[in-house]
Write a protein that binds this DNA or RNA. Structure first.
Lengths: 350, 350
DNA sequence: AATAGTTAGTAAATCGATTTACCAAAAATA
DNA sequence: TATTTTTGGTAAATCGATTTACTAACTATT
C-alpha cells in the first residue's frame, strides 16, 4: 500500500525545507533567494522521486493551463488533420499543448465542447465554426477569452480569423475549366451559410456569369452518416443534366461522394466530366485521371492562426484589435480538367 | 472591470447559504439535507448567473477528471479517426470525455504525451503504442492507472489489449489472391516490430509457404515526411521483381505510397498487379479498379477497448485481471484481385 | 557602533471545489 | 416533560500548487 501520488510537500519534507522554496526552485525564481547547495539538493530529490507538479493544481492557482482548444469540423478530413498537426507543432515551440475535437459541424456538439473546455479553463480557442455557433462563440469573446476562427468566419461580426480567398481561387479554377473547353460546368456545394462555401459558390457564379454560360447548381444538405442519400442526390443531378460536362465540388468530402455517384452511374472523370475540387486529398492525386484541385496553404493558415492567438493570449494590453487574414490558395492542374481529346492521347487509361 | 469568473462562493453568497449546501445541490446529494425551497432558489441563481463549476478545482479535490487520453498513431488515418469517433461517442454515454493525440509512432513524442496527460491526471488511457513505448507504459501500469492497448500490443508483456486476428485474416486474403491465379505475390510491410505488422507478415508467410510459392518481401523504414524516398523504394522493388504479379500492402498508408509508385512506374492495378490491402480507405473503394481490402471492425474494437477501460476505472476491487481480445477482420473482395482476363471483360476501363 | 542592505529562507493566504464532522431547532417518542 | 430522531444546515479541512509579506542572520557602509 505505497502512497501513490507525490506532491510538493513530500519534496519539501524530504529536503528539510518549505514548499515555498521548492516552488521557487521549480519556477526558476530561486536565483538569489535560495543557496546553490539547497537548489541542487532539491533538484536531486525531485529527480530521484520522479516528481512532476500537478498541472491541475498549478492551473487552479495561476489561472493558466497552457492549453489551447482546437475545434475542427472533422479531424479525419486531411485538411483539418493537416492543420491540426501543424498547429500542434507550432504551439509546442511556445510551450502550449493543443487538444482537438471534431464539431461535426453540429452547433449543439460545439456548444457542449465549448462548455467542457471552459470548465477546463483552456487559455484560447482556434475554431472552424459550424453554422449556428456564433452566439456561443460571442460568449467567449465577452469573457475576454482569446479566439481565432479559421476556414470560415461570421460575416455579421468582426472577429479574428484566417481564411483563404475562396471566391477568387474558385473563380480562377472555373475559368480554367471553361478555357479548356467545358462550357457546361456544374457546382456541387453544401446547403449551408458558412462563409467559405458562400465564397466558393460566388467564385463559380462570377466565372459562369462572366462567360455568359448556364449554371447548374446542386445544394447538398450534408449530414454525416447519410452518405447513401447524398450519393443518390448527386447521381440524380447528373442524370437530370445530361448536357453538363464539368463539375466543381466545393469541398473534398462532397467530391468523394460525387465520385462514388459517378461510379454507380457508370460515368467517368475525363470522359463524361471534367472535375475540379476545392481541397487536396490523396484520392485526388491518385485517381485515374488525377483530379485538379484548389489546394489550401496549410502551413500559412496554421502559422497565422496560432500567431494571432498567441498575441491575444500573451499581450494583455487593453488595446482591442481584430485581425482578419485572407490567404491565396493554389490551383493544382491535373488531368481531370484536360481537354478530353488531348487527354485521350496522353493518358493511357482511355 | 466586471469580475469575470464566478465561483461556488458567489452562488452561496447570492443565495444566502453556504458553499457546502450549494455543493450538495450540485452533486445531487441534497435529497434530505436541503429544503426544496432552498434547492430551487440555488438552482435558479445558478441558472441566472450561468455558473459552471471549475472542473480544475473539482478534479484537484476528487482526483477524478472524467477524461480519457486516446493516443493513436496518426489521427488523420481514417482507421484511427474512425476508432476515435466511436470511442468518443461511447465514452460520452458514460460521462467521459476523450482527448486524443497522435504519437506519429514516435516513442519520444509518446513519452512527452504521457507525461503531459499524467500531469493533467486523466483517468485512463487507450493507446496504439509505437515500438519502444513499453517502458513508459509499464510505468503507468505500476501506478495502477488503467490502460488498454489496441491495434497492437507488446508480445513480451501481458496487458489489456484489443486487436484483430492479423495473422489469420492476412492468410485468408493471400489465399484468395493465390486462388485467383496470382502465383507471385509480394508483400510490402513496415520495418517494425509492432505486433500487428508481425502478424500480417506471418499470415503472408503462412499462405505462401502452404502454396509452395516464392516470397517477395519489402520492408519499408517508415518515416513521416519521407514519402518521396519510400515511393522510390517501392518503385525499385517493382522493377527488381518483374515476375511479381500481386501485392499485399500491410497497411493503408503503405498502399497509398505503393499506388503512387505504380503511377510513376506506369504500372496499373488490374493489369500489372493484383492488389490487396490491410485497412479500408475511401481511396481503395473508389480506385479504378476498386481495391480488395481487409477491413477491421471499428465498432467492435472501440466498444471492447472502452468497456475494458471502463471496468478498470470504475471497478476498484483489488482483483487484478488482464483482458486480451482478438477480433476477426473481414475480407472485402473487389476487382483489384479479380482474375485479369475476367476483369477485362466486366470492367470497362481496360 | 549604528544603520542599511543583502541573503536565504518561511508562514500563511489563495485558487474553487468536496467532504467530514458537527450543530441547532423542530418533530417524534417515551 | 425529557429524550431521541429527524431535518436542514454550516465551519473548516483538504486537494497541490503559487505568491505575498515577512523575518532572522549576515555583510557592508558610514
Amino acid at each position: 500500500m505505497k502512497k501513490n501520488k507525490i506532491s510538493i510537500k513530500d519534496i519539501a519534507a524530504a529536503a528539510g525545507t518549505s514548499t515555498t522554496t521548492v516552488s521557487f526552485i521549480l519556477n526558476g525564481k530561486a536565483d538569489h533567494k535560495v543557496s546553490p547547495a539547497l537548489i541542487e539538493k532539491v533538484l536531486r530529490i525531485i529527480e530521484e522521486k520522479n516528481y512532476r507538479p500537478s498541472s491541475l493544481a498549478q492551473s487552479l492557482r495561476t489561472g493558466k493551463t497552457n492549453t489551447i482548444a482546437l475545434l475542427v469540423e472533422d479531424i479525419s478530413n486531411p485538411f483539418f488533420s493537416g492543420i491540426a498537426r501543424l498547429i500542434e507543432e507550432r504551439a509546442a515551440k511556445s510551450g502550449y499543448k493543443i487538444v482537438y475535437s471534431s464539431t461535426e459541424n453540429n452547433p449543439e456538439k460545439t456548444s457542449t465542447l465549448l462548455d467542457f473546455f471552459q470548465e477546463k479553463q483552456v487559455d484560447g480557442y482556434i475554431i472552424s465554426p459550424p453554422d449556428g455557433a456564433l452566439e456561443d462563440i460571442l460568449k467567449l469573446k465577452n469573457k475576454n477569452i482569446p479566439v481565432v476562427l479559421f476556414d470560415r468566419h461570421f460575416a455579421e461580426t468582426n472577429m479574428n480569423h484566417v481564411v483563404v480567398d475562396n471566391r477568387l481561387s474558385s473563380q480562377t479554377a472555373i475559368k480554367h475549366v471553361i478555357n479548356n473547353g467545358f462550357k457546361n460546368v456544374g457546382c456541387i456545394t453544401l446547403n449551408s451559410h458558412q462563409t467559405q462555401m458562400a465564397g466558393r459558390l460566388q467564385g463559380y457564379n462570377d466565372a459562369i456569369e462572366q462567360a455568359g454560360l448556364k449554371k447548374y447548381i446542386l445544394n447538398i444538405d450534408y449530414k454525416a452518416g447519410e452518405n447513401e442519400r447524398m450519393v443518390i442526390e448527386m447521381a440524380k443531378f447528373y442524370k437530370a443534366n445530361p448536357s453538363m460536362n464539368a463539375l466543381f465540388f466545393c469541398t473534398n468530402y462532397l467530391a468523394i461522394l460525387g465520385l462514388e455517384a459517378m461510379q454507380r452511374s457508370n460515368l467517368k472523370v475525363g470522359k463524361d466530366f471534367a472535375v475540379v475540387c476545392f481541397d487536396e486529398h490523396d484520392l485526388f492525386r491518385l485517381y485515374s485521371p488525377p483530379i485538379t484541385v484548389i489546394a489550401q496553404p496549410l502551413a500559412e493558415i496554421a502559422e497565422n492562426a496560432f500567431a494571432i492567438l498567441l498575441n491575444e493570449m500573451e499581450n494583455q494590453s487593453n488595446i482591442k484589435r481584430v485581425e482578419m487574414i485572407e490567404i491565396p490558395a493554389t490551383l493544382i492542374i491535373r488531368q481531370s480538367t484536360s481537354n478530353f481529346s488531348n487527354f485521350s492521347i496522353t493518358g493511357s487509361v482511355f
